[in-house]
Nucleic acid binder design. Structure first.
Length: 617
RNA sequence: GCCAGCUUAGCUCAGCGGCAGAGCAACGGUUUUGUAAACCGUGGGUCGUCGGUUCAAUCCCGACAGCUGGCUCCA
């Protein structure tokens, strides 16, 4: 499984279609139009304050808009916002008309060249011959722009500048870095306020915040290293429950489990073909001489993916067509040296454990097997109540065969057709993205959106018809000849790190019973010995059933104990006082759902045990 | 890796060129309880690290580290 993640590529796909036709632009929503106009107002204000700013572009986004500037004389910081916003308000008060002007190409080029607006000159060159070139003008501000806009600057009434950032011109690292200002705008002040409030709420669901509150994981950059998460006991519960789910599911689907070391010799990654492309993303190798007499040092790499090890397991024994499909699973730990600026909580880390498996099969087995993998994805999505997802089907670009993609035109076509058929026939929500495949075959990445709107590639599913051959993997076929198997890489639960990061935000830390780090807490009202013993015996019985149960026997008032348990997001609270002891019952309370009434002790315990087994809510 | 911002007690955050602060948490005691915070007390800090300016630096300046927001990357 090569890529833990692939966010950003959809962005690339969007850029492909960024040159929208004028018809498409006409369909821009009112809100987009408003935001786009606000971006122009932002640029108007910036130019008034810093007349030497060079302009790039200022499109609307899902959240608002931005405008990119090249400004040598000043570095934007949030401290500039009040000043810029004030100038923007002036522009709005002036109520300038947004006026559309068509220009001939030469005229447009001359306009920007005279003003030294070199980014605009380049943008102008992007516009295909024959397309109408339009400028929009408001007051003194003129911009190359296809529009559309609102009528007047005064139409924008609710806006706010949000953050400064940098961005490479055309998104290319080799180009100059521009200063970007992000802002947002809404039709009404109320809508803006509501959105800002929602942003605040979203912060509370941030997995980093909840992870710290609940004691799930920690980072120790000083002693362990950046991007290397430590799983605390409560987070480890999540990890192990997910592993249990995966093991049960895979066992039922006919997988076998393997275990492999965390490192391998350089030869492994030379053979797999990863090293030339991937070395930068791997931790630097360990190098040493195995024996005094060795002339040359041996290099070991921490593994960045599990497939080569699995391939060697395939090669460890002779294989017959009767052994296929061979489904080899491992929650393998991988290490990737992600660039420092890319690290992001649990979502982007340098050590990760993957829900990996490699399925070795014959071409005839492909459709059935790929379908089965797909079904497993859907099964998981259902368990986690994941309904907002998109499968991104990445295919090759025939013009880059032999470079970016292995030169097997027929295999490419055949496997892509097979994958497409499966996706179509299962009625799954998917998009096809050309030129994004792995070098060894087409892939499907599963995109999900967390509750706070973050988009992630959470899982991946790839077809590999190249690497098994590089390792010389063969099986003896019916006709007594050796043949190279196909391989499906799949990781429906992605990596623990990212998947749990996602689940934390998905559930806002309020995990379903089967996942909850603390499933049950027994709270006593009073400290009399018989009551304490009653509570302890309930906890003991629950634990005997493998339920994660704790007791709060302290001397705090019951209100305080409930407060503590609610804040700790304990799934089920069993309140016991004198009445309950006398009746052999417990008073059930569910996290953020309130009291559920009293029931006999045995019944309550049986219910809990059953609910955990069913992996329900 | 690049641009910008941030870094003060376990957590959330005040503060300021001149003795380091609050709330929550922790700990000790009092209270003995019926569904989201009882009361009293105690401890807790190299103000990220290193260097500079200054009579004096948590505060000003610089470098570094980490984190955050973006960008880039993610086979």
């Amino acid at each position: 499984m090569e890529n833990q993640e692939a966010e950003g590529t959809l962005e690339a796909a969007k850029t492909e279609v960024q040159r929208k036709s004028l018809d498409q632009r006409e369909q821009m929503t009112d809100l987009m139009r408003l935001r786009h106009s606000c971006a122009h107002i932002l640029a108007t204000a910036v130019l008034r304050i810093w007349p030497d700013a060079l302009l790039d572009i200022g499109p609307p986004t899902d959240e608002g808009y931005y405008y990119d500037f090249d400004l040598k004389s000043h570095r934007f910081s949030p401290e500039d916002f009040p000043r810029i916003e004030e100038e923007m308000r002036k522009v709005m008060k002036e109520n300038q008309v947004f006026e559309r002007v068509e220009k001939a190409r030469d005229e447009a080029r001359a306009y920007f060249e005279v003003r030294g607006q070199r980014y605009k000159t380049e943008r102008l060159a992007d516009i295909p011959e024959g397309e109408t070139i339009t400028f929009y003008q408001n007051g003194e501000f003129v911009d190359l722009c296809a529009g559309p806009h609102v009528m007047r600057t005064g139409n924008v009434k609710a806006f706010k500048l949000l953050k400064v950032a940098s961005a490479y011109f055309r998104g290319n690292e080799k180009n100059p870095q521009l200063q970007r200002i992000y802002g947002t705008a809404f039709k009404t002040k109320d809508e803006l306020e509501t959105w800002l409030r929602m942003q605040e709420e979203a912060k509370k669901r941030d997995h980093r915040r909840i992870g710290a509150e609940m004691g799930l994981f920690a980072f120790d950059a000083e002693y362990v290293g950046p991007g290397l998460p430590l799983w605390l006991p409560k987070g480890t519960v999540l990890v192990e429950e997910l592993e249990r789910l995966a093991k049960e599911t895979e066992f039922a689907a006919g997988y076998v489990r393997v275990r492999t070391p965390h490192l391998a010799k350089e030869k492994m990654y030379r053979t797999s073909g990863h090293l030339p492309y991937y070395a930068e993303s791997m931790f630097a190798p360990m190098e040493f001489k195995e024996a005094e007499a060795d002339e040359v040092a041996t290099r070991y790499y921490l593994k960045a993916m599990n497939c080569p090890h699995h391939h060697r397991i395939f090669a460890a024994e002779p294989r017959s067509y009767r052994d296929l499909p061979l489904r080899m699973a491992e929650y393998g730990t991988c290490y990737r040296y992600e660039q420092s600026g890319e690290l992001f909580g649990l979502m982007r880390v340098r050590s990760m454990q993957m829900n990996d498996a490699h399925i070795y099969l014959t071409p005839e087995q492909f459709t059935a097997e790929f379908n089965a993998v797909n079904d497993m994805y859907l099964k998981y999505f259902k368990i986690f109540g994941l309904d907002r997802y998109l499968m991104r089907f990445s295919t090759h670009d025939p013009s880059r065969l032999g470079q970016k993609f292995v030169n097997e035109p027929e295999l490419w076509k055949k496997t892509e057709d097979m994958v497409r058929d499966v996706l179509k026939s299962s009625g799954i929500n998917y998009v096809e993205v050309p030129n994004e495949a792995a070098f060894y075959g087409p892939k499907i990445d599963v995109q999900v959106w967390s509750a706070i709107g973050r988009e992630f590639t959470i899982a991946t599913n790839q077809v590999d018809f190249a690497v098994p051959a590089r390792f010389g993997l063969v099986y003896r076929d019916r006709d007594n000849t050796d043949k190279t198997p196909l391989c499906i890489h799949r990781a429906p639960l992605g990596t623990h790190e990212r998947f749990i990061g996602f689940l934390i935000e998905h559930y806002a830390g309020n995990f379903p019973l089967w996942l909850a780090p603390e499933q049950v807490r027994v709270l006593t009202i009073g400290e009399e010995a018989p009551l304490t013993e009653y509570a302890q015996s309930i906890v003991a019985e629950l634990r005997a059933h493998q339920v994660r149960a704790e007791a709060d026997l302290g001397n705090n008032p019951i209100k305080a104990k409930i407060q503590d348990a609610e804040v700790a997001r304990v799934h089920t609270m069993l309140v016991v006082g004198g009445r309950d002891l006398a009746a052999g019952q417990v008073s059930v309370r569910l996290h953020s759902k309130g009291p559920q009434g009293a029931r006999p002790r045995a019944e309550a315990i049986a219910q809990i045990v059953e609910a955990i087994r069913d992996r329900g809510s």
